[in-house]
Design a protein around this nucleic acid. Structure first.
Length: 241
DNA sequence: CGTCCAGGTCTAC
DNA sequence: GGTAGACCTGGACGC
């Protein structure tokens, strides 16, 4: 995927021939990943009245997500207590060793079944996941066996509290991970992602160090169910402006 | 070469 | 319910 003309994105296909059905599925996946059908008008209505976030009301806030919730959960575990370079190395190793290969040799992110088929030593020695190795094994096993259905967390019929509780029950997912998966993968914007990057970034922008509870109160008061998205955009304004 | 720590979580008080 | 300590790894940093 690459940027096309303003307001457009282009998808490049590598490898063999494609059928209309394949292209249809690909388009649906890309729409899903880019969250093109998301309705953020409720958020924009509030943001427009906020001098700090009025810029976002022009169309910001579509969080890129993976094709599956499982992939986002695994990647999120690989962001915890480590550097971004290590995160990319871990996820790259998963793809290179367990991913389903395409005709051109490129590989997709592995399925839960593929991840469940290898031993814990694979995650330690090849993926270099360290103490996360047993978390990744248990996660893959429970999803592959059907004991846990992480895709079901996208069900709009579920409340945020219920979804958060189920995410927190997953191995390697704590408050940060749950908030991160909810914001990026599930389109649930109420939780603030508080971690070693967002805290100091907020402190810098706000001009002073602030307790988590205070930050949450500020954003919840003004943005309610959109608090997490508002917080994220407040922090990342510099990325796009 | 030792220490610290990076987009935290879990366990045991 | 809140809070120390341990936890893999590897790059950055001070010595």
């Amino acid at each position: 995927m690459r940027a096309g003309a303003p307001g457009r994105a282009a998808v490049e296909l590598h490898g063999g021939r494609t059928t209309a059905a394949m292209r249809g599925r690909l388009l649906a996946t890309v729409r899903h990943m880019l969250r093109l059908d998301e309705d953020l008008s409720g958020f924009y209505a509030v943001a427009a009245a906020d001098p700090e976030l009025a810029w976002a009301a022009g169309g910001a806030g579509r969080m890129l997500r993976s094709p599956t919730v499982f992939e986002d959960v695994v990647k999120t575990v690989c962001t915890t207590n480590t550097s971004w370079s290590a995160t990319t190395k871990m996820t790259t190793a998963l793809v290179e060793h367990l991913g389903d290969p395409a005709p051109d040799g490129r590989r997709a992110f592995p399925s839960a079944a593929a991840m469940a088929a290898v031993e814990e030593t694979f995650y330690r020695e090849i993926v270099r996941a360290g103490y996360r190795a047993p978390y990744l094994c248990e996660l893959a096993d429970s999803v592959a066996s059907g004991a846990v259905d992480v895709e079901a967390l996208a069900d709009p019929g579920l409340g945020d509290d219920e979804v958060a509780a189920r995410l927190l029950a997953l191995p390697g997912i704590g408050p940060y991970g749950a908030a991160h998966v909810m914001l990026t993968s599930l389109g649930r914007y109420s939780r603030l992602v508080l971690d070693s990057w967002t805290r100091p970034t907020y402190a810098r922008l706000a001009g002073r160090k602030t307790a988590d509870a205070t930050i949450e109160r500020r954003f919840r008061r003004r943005y309610g169910e959109w608090a997490g998205l508002a917080f994220w955009l407040y922090l990342t304004k510099g990325w796009v402006q």
